[in-house]
Computed example of a mutant assay.
Amino acid sequence: MEANAKLAQLPTLSENNDLAEEQVASFQTKGHILLRGVASAQEVSRYEPVIEQFVRQHNNHTLPVDQRDTYGKAFIQVGNIWAQDEAVKRFVLARRFAKIAAELMGVDGVRIYHDQALFKEPGGGHTPWHQDQVYWPLDTTKTITMWMPLVPISEEVGSMTFVDGSHSSGYMSRQFISDESHKTLGSYIAGKGLTTTNYGAMAAGDATFHAGWTLHSAPGNPTDKMREIMTIIYYADGTRALEPDSSARESDLKNWLPGIKPGEIAASPLNPLLFIR
């Protein structure tokens, strides 16, 4: 009873945040957008302690930051929290967030791929240039990630940096997040003279949304405060699973689309429909 009472007191996050046509057009052109106040500071403050506690309890890092490899230095990473905690479930499966994702992509319905807490520790390293969708066995370009700070993040920690319009190029590199991806893709960006956007400081409850093929990176954390980020990945309802062409996609198919075979509609019990027009 006590747990149910606490759950009932959490914000439902069901109210609409309506988007302007210009915002949708900007996202579809650039492959990314910053939206202020997707959740209020008060709403986020109710969920932050729950998510923070879960991440702390499930942090698998055993080495100090400076003794890890580049990927390990980038963040504490915990996924599919919604399936393990009822309070986080209310946050992650929120209709408000899913509706924004659907409208930005221009689709009628969206399912969740998975959530992921990405906490960058004080002294944590940069996140190398990469495309998210190299990991995902999803046969669609209609994928999007919401990246929301649970605490204010300063200019020096900042948002991610996005390469404008890079989502329209699709598969640019088979490299996963690594020193090699940062060097190779960084050279490509410089050589092509591609334009980038960094949104700087963000308040708790602000959010960026970026397409699955949008090339992006993130700076390290030189501050003494944890950078607490919650991400939610969505894809268009009706999407089919791909035949995995890498060990990473094979792992993702098993973990995030359990029971789904290549060619089938990507709609396992872990991928509920969160919004439909």
Rank of each mutant, 00 (worst) to 15 (best):
E156Q: 14
Q116F: 01
G170M: 02
P152T: 06
S26A: 11
I189W: 13
T214H: 02
K120N: 13
A211K: 04
R68Q: 12
D224K: 15
V24T: 11
D206F: 09
H167F: 14
Y71R: 12
I232S: 11
S178W: 03
P244C: 08
M226W: 06
I112P: 00
T197W: 12
N16L: 12
R249H: 02
T141C: 05
D132Y: 01
S26N: 08
A39R: 06
A5C: 02
A267S: 11
T196L: 05
L10Y: 00
T145Q: 09
P222E: 11
A248P: 01
K254T: 04
L63Q: 15
L104Y: 03
K6R: 09
Q67N: 05
L270F: 15
P269A: 03
P272E: 06
N59E: 13
K6C: 06
I232A: 10
D85Q: 13
M105T: 05
R240P: 05
L10A: 03
D66G: 02
V24G: 06
S166W: 01
A25K: 06
D245A: 13
S45H: 06
H32A: 13
Y235W: 09
A101F: 07
D164N: 04
L138T: 03
Y188V: 06
Q133W: 14
Q131E: 14
P244G: 07
M148H: 01
N80A: 11
M202K: 00
L185K: 08
I189K: 06
T143Q: 15
D115F: 09
S169P: 00
A8S: 06
L273K: 14
Y71F: 14
K30Y: 07
Q77A: 14
Y235E: 03
A20P: 00
N271T: 04
M148Q: 01
Q57A: 15
K183G: 04
D85G: 03
H58Q: 08
A207D: 09
M148F: 10
W147L: 02
E180N: 03
G106R: 12
P262D: 07
E15T: 13
R96P: 01
L34E: 08
V163Q: 01
Y171W: 11
A201K: 12
I233Q: 14
N16P: 11
I276N: 15
I33M: 02
G109V: 12
N4Y: 04
V44C: 00
H167Q: 15
R68L: 09
K99F: 10
V163T: 10
V78K: 05
P219K: 15
V157T: 13
E155A: 07
G170S: 03
Q133D: 14
A207Y: 13
S26G: 02
I232Y: 03
L215P: 05
H114V: 04
L104I: 01
T140Q: 08
R249M: 15
E156F: 02
I81Q: 10
